[in-house]
Computed example of a mutant assay.
Amino acid sequence: MPTQKIHDQINSRLEDLYRRHREEPEGSVARYYPPEMEDSKDLFAISLCVVDGGGTYQTGDCDHAFPLQSISKVFTYGLALEDNGRDRVLESVGVEPSGDAFNSITFDNRMNRPHNPMVNAGALVTTDLVAGENKDEQLRRILDKLRAYAGNPELEIDESILDPQGQSTDRNRAISYLMRSFGMISDDIEPNLALYGRQCSVHVTAEELSLMAATLANGGVNPRTGKRALDRRYVRDVLSVMHTCGMYDAAGQWAYEVGIPAKSGVSGGILAVVPGKLGLGVFSPGLDDYGNSVRGVRVCREISEDLGLHVFADETEDLLLHAADPEK
């Protein structure tokens, strides 16, 4: 565990990041939110959770809860892998970057499947693949998983955003019915759309998001509770797809500049994972043209550069050692 001196230095660095990036433009807010969402576009939070002991360092609006949105795709994909196995899931959902927007109506025509589970088409299929006798059981199992990752047994769905969010699901509905015509998804289109909407509407804080990331960094075991959230054999699969497909159609740029597995959501959250070391959760609703948090991308980029976290960096520095010696 870090000493008090290192603890203070990490907090100081996060405060500096928060102060500098808070002054930069925040972008825009996802358009399907109700008008009052405009009031939250100045919210900004950074939380870092280390694997060793599950300690968190945070600054900003870390107590503010926001919907996971597309970040939920990560965890449902992991659950689908556990329920069906790698080969079965790969038959239904690929692992290739699409190069298109997350809600594009495009598929891998050669393999007759969505490109990957991080775009809406693939996520709708992985949600459909979650085991359960009915949609209520599927939802319960998804919620239980999310709670295990976050270390919070009281995570809930925010029903208030389902109606305004539901008004914009026509594109997902079109994707689903087209996939059904190709035999990519089951016949339960409307119930599956409702289930998908509910998993996206589960609310977390930035601190909980960083703990969810740290759980993936810790081989699928929540470092705070000690409970396994994902079978170790599938952690590699989840992180690999996050690394290549997790940041919408800016995934290639992210892999080039930041170089760590991550997933964003249009609510303004970014979950980033440094395997064996830490999880990062950033929240800022202002979005860039790709649907990624403007401040979140900048914060993650700076942390990766400063600490040498890029997977292909020449030298990787230990977070705590770097924090202990700012001259490094």
Rank of each mutant, 00 (worst) to 15 (best):
M1Y: 11
P2F: 06
Q4D: 13
K5Q: 14
H7V: 05
I10V: 15
H21D: 01
V29Q: 00
Y33H: 07
E38N: 12
D39Y: 12
K41C: 06
K41V: 15
L43H: 14
C49R: 03
D52H: 14
G54R: 12
C62Y: 13
P67S: 15
Q69W: 00
S70D: 03
V74P: 02
F75Y: 14
A80T: 05
A80E: 01
N84Y: 10
G85W: 13
G85A: 09
R86M: 12
R88E: 10
V89G: 02
L90C: 06
V95N: 03
V95T: 14
E96M: 13
E96W: 06
D100L: 08
A101Y: 06
P114G: 09
N116M: 07
M118V: 05
V119E: 08
A121Q: 03
G122Y: 02
L124F: 12
L124I: 15
V125K: 05
T126M: 03
T127R: 02
L129E: 01
N134L: 02
Y149K: 10
Y149H: 00
G151S: 05
N152S: 11
E156M: 12
I157W: 00
I157M: 08
I157Y: 08
I161F: 01
D163T: 14
D170R: 07
N172I: 08
N172L: 10
R173G: 05
R180N: 12
D188P: 06
D188C: 07
G197A: 14
S201R: 02
L211T: 11
L211G: 04
L211I: 15
M212G: 04
A214N: 06
L216R: 04
A217F: 11
N218F: 03
G220N: 10
V221Y: 01
N222T: 06
R224D: 00
A229C: 06
L230V: 10
R232A: 15
V235A: 07
V235D: 08
R236T: 13
D237I: 07
D249T: 09
A250H: 12
Q253R: 13
Q253V: 09
A255N: 10
A255P: 02
G259T: 04
G259F: 05
I260D: 00
G265H: 07
S267L: 02
G269F: 00
I270H: 01
V273C: 04
V273I: 08
V274Y: 01
G276A: 04
G276D: 04
G279P: 03
G279Y: 01
D288E: 07
N292C: 13
S293D: 00
V294N: 00
R295D: 00
G296C: 04
V297S: 00
R298S: 11
E302D: 12
E302L: 04
G308R: 13
L309C: 03
H310I: 00
V311A: 12
F312C: 09
D314T: 09
E317N: 11
L320G: 00
H322N: 14
A323Y: 08
A324N: 13
D325M: 02
D325Q: 10
